[in-house]
Computed example of a mutant assay.
Amino acid sequence: MRLENKVILITGSATGIGKAIAKRCVAEGARVVVHGLEVDLAAAVVAELGAANAVSHIEDLTSEGCPQRLVDLAIKTFGRLDAIVNNAAMVTQGNIHNTDAAYFMKMISVNTLAPFLLIQAALEELSKTRGSVLNIGSVNAWSGEPDLLPYSISKGALMTMTRNLGDTLMRENGVRVNQINPGWVLTENEARRKREHGLREDWYADLPKMYAPSGRILWPEEIAAAAVYWLADESGPVSGQVMDLEQHPFMGRNPPKDSSTIPSK
């Protein structure tokens, strides 16, 4: 198994991509700290994975001291910490016209500052195990859509942090820092957002080829499969890298004139 005996802390792992990563990590031999905001959902994940393989912590990442409490829980429960996955994120719309300072700062606090503080809190333990950090970004980090302005900026900042710390921490602590930028993924929250936008229940079954050349969008399990490589020893000393996980070359891609449009992903 590719992650045998590793202990991995995964934020935002009660649902969606984080949940899929937690499940895949345990399947590969790891034990995990599940984090989220919903007690019932986190408890369900732990029950599915088994108490010997998982423990949960419910708290807003931006609460003072939360990162250290997550690290302490991993050490208290499993005795070590080999990796953290910064997956938790605030994914809401906003543009140049309707984004105020408070909203912008909240986005940065959740999507950029919280991952930084968790890396900071975990660094001593990760140094002991020559561990790794995997940041979950977004293809929107490269520029983003008009109505995803603050979100895109927060993910762009996360990408810069990955590049910077990927170099610094490998040199100083032997800790690898990498990032994957998922494209459009069919998570529970994404399905809910699209229904709130007025799309039909099965909106994902018939998508314009411009947005889904394969005929479908990505599954959380496919992101989790990619995450395992960066968390496993097989990725060697590779650090400071960002991998985009999407099915089309989104940068510089021009939609055909007759393409259909759908709400932002």
Results as ranks from 00 to 15, higher is better:
N87Q: 08
P150Y: 04
T112G: 13
P220Q: 11
T261W: 09
N53I: 05
A20F: 02
E196H: 03
P256V: 00
E124R: 15
L134W: 12
W142R: 09
A20W: 07
Y151E: 14
G36L: 01
K265S: 14
D244L: 02
W219Y: 12
Y229V: 11
H197R: 13
D244R: 05
V71C: 05
N5R: 13
A157K: 07
I58A: 08
R195I: 08
E221Q: 13
D244I: 01
I223Q: 09
L186G: 07
G215K: 00
W230M: 07
G18I: 15
L186M: 12
A205M: 13
D100A: 04
E190P: 03
Q93G: 15
L123S: 02
G174N: 06
F116E: 08
P220C: 09
H248N: 13
N181D: 14
D258Y: 02
P249Q: 09
D100C: 02
G137S: 13
R24K: 15
I75L: 01
V139I: 11
K257G: 04
R195Q: 11
V7Q: 07
E64W: 06
Y211S: 10
Y211R: 07
S138E: 13
N98T: 08
D167V: 04
W142P: 04
S264L: 04
L218Q: 10
A47Y: 03
R216W: 12
D167G: 05
N111W: 04
P237D: 12
T77R: 15
E124M: 12
T92Q: 14
V139C: 03
K128H: 10
L186E: 07
T99V: 05
R192K: 15
R2M: 05
S239Q: 06
S63L: 09
G131Y: 01
S152D: 06
W142K: 08
Q93W: 03
L134A: 09
E124C: 01
L134G: 14
L134F: 00
L73F: 03
L117S: 06
V110C: 06
T168N: 11
D40T: 01
V46F: 01
A89Y: 03
Q241K: 06
M1C: 14
I108S: 11
L73M: 05
P213H: 14
A224R: 15
A224E: 00
F104R: 02
M210S: 07
S259V: 02
I75C: 00
L186W: 06
A141C: 10
P182V: 03
